[in-house]
Every structure is written in C-alpha cells, then in structure tokens.
C-alpha cells in the first residue's frame, strides 16, 4: 500500500452481535473485526457487505447511536448490527 492509498481508505470496526456473529471472519475473537473500506463509504455499504439489510429487521448503530443509512464513515467508526429481537 502506498502512502497515497491512505487517502482513499479508512479503517473502521464492525461489530456483529447475537446470531450475526457467525458472519464475522473465522477466527475473530469476540464480536468485532477491523476492516478497511474506501473513503466515501456509508453505513449502508457496510451492512450490505455482510449480506444484511438496513431495514426494520435489524438494528444498526454507528458508534452506539442510531444512524442514517447514508451516513458517511470516518476513521475509527464502529458499525454495529444485530437482529431486531426482544431481550431480557
């Protein structure tokens, strides 16, 4: 990767919880993995990258907060997805 590439790539974390954990790369410890994505990526792209939908069947959080699907990502952002489901 050239120095130049850093301008086009950002590093973010993806957290997949509950049953979506299995979609994380094998060998992932815990429920978080770090990935690099092109700058100008938005939250929806990440969700779709894991074959998930940004719709009412899922809860999608950006840094723990509710988010717009078209929200642009920046370095160190955390995108978290889990199925909408009752709990405890």
């Amino acid at each position: 990767m050239s120095v130049f590439d850093n301008f086009f790539v950002i590093k973010i974390s993806v957290k997949l919880l509950a049953t979506y954990r299995k979609k994380l790369p094998e060998g992932t410890k815990g429920c978080t993995c770090q990935i690099e994505v092109p700058t100008h990526s938005v939250v929806r792209h990440i969700v779709e990258q894991y074959d998930l939908a940004f719709d009412e069947t899922n809860v999608v959080l950006l840094n723990g907060r509710v988010t717009d699907p078209e929200q642009k990502l920046k370095n160190d952002d955390v995108v978290c997805v889990f199925p909408a489901l009752a709990g405890g």
């Binding site: 957290k15 919880l17 509950a18 049953t19 429920c31 889990f82 199925p83 489901l85 009752a86 709990g87 405890g88």
Partner: peptide, 13 residues
C-alpha cells in the same frame, strides 16, 4: 438469538 444464546446475548447490545 433467544434460542441460541438465551437472553445472555443482551450484554453485548
């Protein structure tokens, strides 16, 4: 998730 983990999946959330 409820079947697989019980409500114990919730702490992460």
């Amino acid at each position: 998730a409820l079947r697989e983990y019980g409500t114990a999946y919730v702490p992460q959330v």
